[in-house]
Design a binder for these strands. Structure first.
Length: 589
RNA sequence: GGGGCUGUAGCUCAGCUGGUUAGAGUGCCGGUCUGUCACACCGGAGGUCGCGGGUUCGAGCCCCGUCAGCCCCGCCA
C-alpha cells in the first residue's frame, strides 16, 4: 500500500522478510555515522527508521554523496535488503534485523542545517516551545509528534465509523454564521458587500444541529471546528474540534448510550478498553463530595461535612463563620501526616489564591497532634472524623461556593504530593442533574448555566420551579467526565416554543430581543419539532488524554500560542489599506 | 484585565556576593577512521547575555519599563 512510482515501501516498514529484495526508499537523513571506509545513514520516514550502510563495495558516486550528506536532507536510495550479522542487530529498532546496501543514492531535497534538532540525544530537552511552534515543519517530523497525529487520525476515523454505524448522518454546517450576543466572545468576519455587518465564526453548531432535527434528519454528527475568542489555557485553543452529535425522538438515556458507545470505541482505539456503563453522579453530589463538577474518581478521597463534629470544639477560626450558618468541610487525608510544613504552607497559599479564608489542619502521629488547630482536637475527636494514626485533617469554613473550589484544589494537590495510587486507571463518569441557572456573581440574577436551549427537568417544570425557584430547577444537562477532565457536555433541548420563550424571559431578555437573536430557532420549533437532544465531545482533549501529551498544542498540527498567535505563519497580521477599505473598516490603535 | 516562571552560542544549559578575555554539551565547518547505531578521536568558527532606559568606577547579574513563550486566576452560554 505504501508503494508509489518512486518507492517500493516505507523505510520503517522493512523487516527480515524483505531480505534479498531490491527496494527503493525515500526519506530524511535522521543521523549519519561516518566511519571513514563505511558510512551509516539512519533514513527516516513516517513509518520509522532504517539503517542504510554504504561500504567499500558501494559504487563510487554513492560513496561520495553519502560522505557529504547533511542532516534532514531528503534522499532516495535503491538497493538490496541485507540481514545484519547477529552481533550487529539493533533490538531497539523495529528494522534492526536488517539494513539496506544501496547501489543508487540521490539527493532529492537538499536541506539547510535545521534551526531546531529533529534527531535528539537521549535525555536531551525539547527546544523551547516558541521555537517548536516557529519551526513547526521540523517539530512535526519528530516521531512523537507523528505518533500523536497518527493516533488523532485513527480516533477521527473510529468516531466517524462508530457514529455512521449508529445511523448518524455527517452533515456540515456553516463556518460563516451569525454573531451570538451571549456566551464566549465571537470571532467576527467583516462583510464586504454589507458595510458594517459581520459574520461570526461558530462557537459551536448548536442552533444548526437543532434545525437539522427540526428538518427531520433524525441523527446528525459532525467533526466540527469551533471558535471562541477567549483567553487560552494549556487545554484551551481558540479553534478546536468537537465531535458534535444530535438525535431525535430520544431521552437522556439514549444520548448517554450513543456517547458512551463513541467514547468506549475511542478508548479502545487508543488501546484502553473500558467498562460500561459509566457510573453516574449528580451535580449536587459531585460538588458536595469533590467540590467540582468534574471529579477525578480514580481516587476515593472525598470531602466530608464536619460542621456538627467541630462546632463544639471552640476553634476560634471557625466560630464567627459557623454563627453565620456556614459549614466546616474537610478532607481526612490518609497518610497526610507525611505532608511537610512546606507542603501545608503551599496548600494554604493555593487556597488563598482561590479566595478561601485559609486552611485549618491537624496532623496525627500516635498521640501527638500538630497543626494550626491541633490544640482544639484530641485523637478521639479526630478518630470520629475518620482521621487515624499517620493521617491528617484539612478543613475550611465558609459558604460552599468558596470552600468547594478550595477543597477541590487541595484534594488534587494532596493526592499528587502523597503520590496516592489510583484505584482505577480509567474513571469515566456521567455528571447529571445540573442546575438550569446559576446566579450572576455580580447581580445575583439568573444566568443560564450552559446554553439557553437546555430543557428544564420535567419534574421541576411540572412543579412550577421555573417561576417559583429558578435556582432549584434542574436541567436535562449532562457532562462526561474522565479522570478529572471534562470530555464534553450535552442536553435534551427545549422543543416547546412557549417554554423556550419563558426561559428567555427569566434571563431578562425582551421579547423583541429574543426574536432578533433567536427568531430562526423559535420559528423552527414552531414548525413541528421532534423531541431531541445531543452532545459535543472535546476531541482535542480526548486525543491529548489518549496520547499522554502534556498540552493540546502537542496534538494539533498547527496550534496557537497562549496569546492566540500562530508563530509559524505569523497570524494574525495587519491587513493592507486596500483590504480594509473594501471591508469598510477603519483601524484605531 | 491580574499574578507567577522563563529569556545567555543554531539547540539544550551553567555562569558565585556586581569585577579582568562569558563557559560546557550538542549541532555546524575542517581532518583521521571498514561495523557504527547518541560512532570515536583531533582541530576550528560561532555571543545585540530578548529589547529600551537607569543605578554604579564597573551590569549577563541590581532597579524601572517593554516584548515574547509558558503556567495560573478572571473569562471560556
Amino acid at each position: 500500500m505504501s508503494r508509489t512510482s518512486r518507492r517500493t515501501l516505507r523505510c520503517g516498514e522493512l523487516r527480515a522478510q524483505h531480505v534479498g529484495q531490491r527496494v527503493r526508499l525515500g526519506g530524511w537523513v535522521h543521523r549519519r555515522r561516518d566511519l571513514g571506509g563505511i558510512v551509516f545513514i539512519d533514513l527516516r520516514d513516517r513509518a520509522g527508521l532504517v539503517q542504510v550502510a554504504i561500504g567499500p563495495s558501494a559504487p563510487e558516486d554513492v560513496r561520495r554523496i553519502a560522505g557529504g550528506l547533511a542532516g534532514e536532507t531528503v534522499i532516495e536510495v535503491e538497493g538490496e535488503v541485507v540481514a545484519r550479522p547477529a552481533n550487529m542487530r539493533n533490538s531497539e529498532l523495529a528494522t534492526g534485523e536488517i539494513e539496506v546496501h544501496p547501489s543508487k543514492l540521490v539527493i532529492v531535497g537538499p536541506a539547510v542545517t535545521p534551526a531546531i534538532p529533529v534527531a535528539r540525544a537521549k535525555g536531551e530537552e525539547l527546544p523551547a516551545e516558541e521555537l517548536r511552534l516557529k519551526y513547526r515543519h521540523l517539530d512535526l517530523r519528530r516521531p512523537e509528534m507523528q505518533a500523536n497525529l497518527v493516533l488523532r487520525h485513527r480516533l477521527l476515523q473510529r468516531a466517524r465509523r462508530t457514529l455512521s454505524e449508529l445511523e448518524f448522518l455527517e452533515i456540515e454546517t456553516p463556518i460563516l454564521t451569525k454573531p451570538t450576543p451571549e456566551g464566549a466572545r465571537d470571532y467576527l468576519v467583516p462583510s464586504r458587500v454589507h458595510p458594517g455587518e459581520f459574520y461570526a465564526l461558530p462557537q459551536s453548531p448548536q442552533i444548526y444541529k437543532q434545525l437539522l432535527m427540526v428538518a427531520g434528519f433524525d441523527r446528525y454528527f459532525q467533526i466540527a471546528r469551533c471558535f471562541r475568542d477567549e483567553d487560552l489555557r494549556n487545554d484551551r485553543q481558540p479553534e478546536f474540534t468537537q465531535i458534535d452529535i444530535e438525535a431525535s425522538f430520544v431521552g437522556m438515556e439514549d444520548v448517554l448510550g450513543f456517547v458512551e458507545t463513541v467514547l468506549a470505541a475511542l478508548w479502545e482505539e487508543g488501546g484502553h478498553p473500558v467498562a460500561r456503563p459509566f457510573p453516574r453522579i449528580t451535580w449536587r453530589e459531585a460538588m458536595e463530595r469533590y467540590g467540582t463538577d468534574k471529579p477525578d474518581l480514580r481516587y476515593e478521597l472525598a470531602i466530608a461535612d464536619w460542621t456538627t463534629q467541630v462546632a463544639g470544639l471552640g476553634v476560634p477560626f471557625f466560630q464567627s463563620a459557623l454563627q453565620n450558618g456556614a459549614r466546616v468541610r474537610g478532607l481526612a487525608v490518609k497518610g497526610g501526616a507525611a505532608l511537610s510544613r512546606k507542603d501545608v504552607d503551599q496548600l494554604a497559599d493555593a487556597a488563598k489564591q482561590l479566595g478561601g479564608s485559609g486552611l485549618a489542619w491537624v496532623k496525627r502521629q500516635g498521640e501527638q497532634l500538630s497543626g494550626s488547630v491541633a490544640k482544639h482536637f484530641t485523637p478521639s475527636a479526630l478518630g470520629a472524623l475518620g482521621v487515624g494514626d499517620g493521617d491528617a485533617a484539612v478543613m475550611v469554613v465558609g459558604p460552599d461556593q468558596s470552600t468547594s473550589p478550595v477543597l477541590d484544589r487541595i484534594r488534587q494537590e494532596v493526592l499528587q504530593r502523597l503520590s496516592v495510587k489510583p484505584s482505577a486507571a480509567h474513571a469515566f463518569a456521567w455528571v447529571v442533574d445540573f442546575p438550569l441557572f446559576e446566579p450572576d456573581p455580580e447581580t445575583g440574577k439568573p444566568v443560564f448555566a450552559h446554553h439557553p436551549f437546555t430543557s428544564p427537568h420535567p419534574d421541576d417544570l411540572a412543579a412550577g420551579k421555573l417561576e417559583s425557584d429558578p435556582f432549584a430547577c434542574r436541567a436535562l444537562h449532562y457532562d462526561a467526565v474522565y479522570n478529572g477532565n471534562e470530555l464534553g457536555s450535552g442536553s435534551i433541548r427545549i422543543t416547546d416554543p412557549a417554554v423556550q420563550r419563558k426561559v428567555f424571559a427569566l434571563l431578562g431578555l425582551a421579547a423583541a430581543d429574543v426574536d432578533a437573536r433567536f427568531g430562526f430557532l423559535l420559528q423552527g420549533l414552531q414548525a413541528g419539532a421532534p423531541p431531541h437532544g445531543g452532545f459535543a465531545v472535546g476531541f482535542d482533549r480526548v486525543v491529548m488524554l489518549l496520547t499522554g501529551a502534556g498540552s493540546l498544542r502537542d496534538v494539533i498540527a498547527f496550534p496557537k500560542t497562549t496569546a492566540a498567535r500562530a508563530l509559524f505563519e505569523g497570524a494574525p497580521a495587519p491587513a493592507g489599506p486596500a483590504d480594509l477599505k473594501a471591508l469598510h473598516i477603519k483601524v484605531e490603535r
